[in-house]
Design a binder for these strands. Sequence first.
DNA 1: TTGTATGCGTTATCAG
DNA 2: CTGATAACGCATACAA
Lengths: 337, 337
Amino acid sequence: MVATIKDVAKLAECSIKTVSRVVNNEPHVTEQTREKVLDAIEALGYAPNISARRLVQRKSYMICILLHEAGFYQSVVLSKIMEMGYEHDYDILTQTYFPSHSKSRNKLMQLITEHRIDGLVTTPPCDMDDFLAGLLKKSDIPLVQITPFNRATDAAYVSGDDYQGAFLMAEHLVSLGHRRIAFLSGPRNQRTSLDRLFGYRAALEMHQIPQDEELILDSEFNFDGGYTAAKIIMGMKDRPTAIFAGSDEAALGALYALQEMQIDVPQEVSICGFDDLAYSKHTWPGLTTVHHPVDEIVERATGLLLEILSGETPAKKQVVLPSQLVIRGSTGEPPSK
Amino acid sequence: MVATIKDVAKLAECSIKTVSRVVNNEPHVTEQTREKVLDAIEALGYAPNISARRLVQRKSYMICILLHEAGFYQSVVLSKIMEMGYEHDYDILTQTYFPSHSKSRNKLMQLITEHRIDGLVTTPPCDMDDFLAGLLKKSDIPLVQITPFNRATDAAYVSGDDYQGAFLMAEHLVSLGHRRIAFLSGPRNQRTSLDRLFGYRAALEMHQIPQDEELILDSEFNFDGGYTAAKIIMGMKDRPTAIFAGSDEAALGALYALQEMQIDVPQEVSICGFDDLAYSKHTWPGLTTVHHPVDEIVERATGLLLEILSGETPAKKQVVLPSQLVIRGSTGEPPSK
DNA sequence: TTGTATGCGTTATCAG
DNA sequence: CTGATAACGCATACAA
């Protein structure tokens, strides 16, 4: 039988309230009795039962983070979360959430209504779901969004700067001498996609480079999307000298396609991506890309949620972190003809 | 104020025990009263408070899975876990655990003593830790190991077949005509490493190929380890015609090294790995490797733990799943000289 | 500085 | 088939 607070009180010859004070580091306990209590705790191997605390405080001390799928990006998220778990008293649950997927919905509902999670963090595109929004409104638990689709003025979020990152990358290509730069876009219903596209466009415009709409391809932010798009592009009469993929995964698909076609990268065509996945530096050539500080974003987002939960009013509920150019071997000057 | 079981009982004009019966699908309730209760639940938007259940049942309904680090392998684990979360009533916590890291230890101890987790799953090399073993012995919670270092006869575990996988791969190389096959080994304190090495050796022996100890390099199971080892190997006078890396990450490092040295793969040298990471098919050329059914392993391991927790005595507590050869473009016949 | 009494929302016992 | 009542282990208002 495991020791309870009563057992400790009995052994330490005091009330349970005093034990409670010691355990929770509350004031108003003489050093002497504190010692006695600590000795008793030690002797009995006592540890508080969190379930009981949860019940009486009407707080679950659990937060949940919604992930769309598992991948390298998600593993970074996970890593950061677990690290933060060391510091805080909250259990951090992870759940895959597919908008409009009934299993996801049921589980999330359970988490909110039965497990009574204290707060929620979403990663894209989990926030794009009316069901979730409705659920949150009804239950009134705080939410922090990571890179949300809509930046509502009253919502808390932490985001990377997609626009600026894409702008920098496009400028990098221009400065190398490229004029015909293809862009592989992602789904139009994701803010991330659109911002990257806009950044690309803005850079071309600023440098007065004519925008050939033929060079902007809608595709998916994954390997196959990049592969297919690259094949199409390389089949055009007037080929571009650079391919700017809106995501690293797509860039890797494009890279694979060109290598299959025996087109030298970057001698004949430059390729670059966006995201800086962990293995993007391990391809040959290493992929030039834009780094998002994913771990910092996750840390800030989770920290923000925890701050809100603690009752404080955070200084800024909305954070946008700058992107950074990472230049590797996959980009270079265009062929001199 | 959120509705409790009492509110439901009042509205349904019955006792809380009856409500409890309905909620938990227990027998001995007339269809009529059941309906009445269900109506009341619906009307009040009642959902049971899991914290209370946890307290009174002295069961946390939480299990924890210990991960050494975050990476692609881990994201697969996570994905499977989250999927299983849909089906079961347990919350699945993930924790990074570094043997002999005090933060890890404290957190794990907290999870066991305060959160009272019901069970534990370890992934390598988290099980190689006396502290953990001691903790488990004292607290007596069930453990299932994934690919444990020691296969104790009484311990529950689920594992891939490293020996067989390495054997198959070495045979594959031999059948292509290779005779000088380098092997990049991992840390000697991991069972996985050793088994793979033994599998390689056994295959060479069976095919009566002399084993040149110079061709067996101790390195790390990561990119840099493979990179460095490959450089060393390719600097030898009598080069091998194939490099069998004990892990995909090392294989990718080796691949990078050879491409940097402008050595054609697989025309001049074949390369293969082990693990079948998600991005190993996206390199150029695609990496020949051994597939471990990671998701199935995780599923079986977690399922096994849940089975034990439910009180059943599982048919087999020890499972070894076969590996499978995945042949892609990075291996081919040796140059004909 | 210390202690008492009450309640958190369930499940479980045992009697009706 | 149904229900009153006692735990579960802790926090907390309120006294002392």
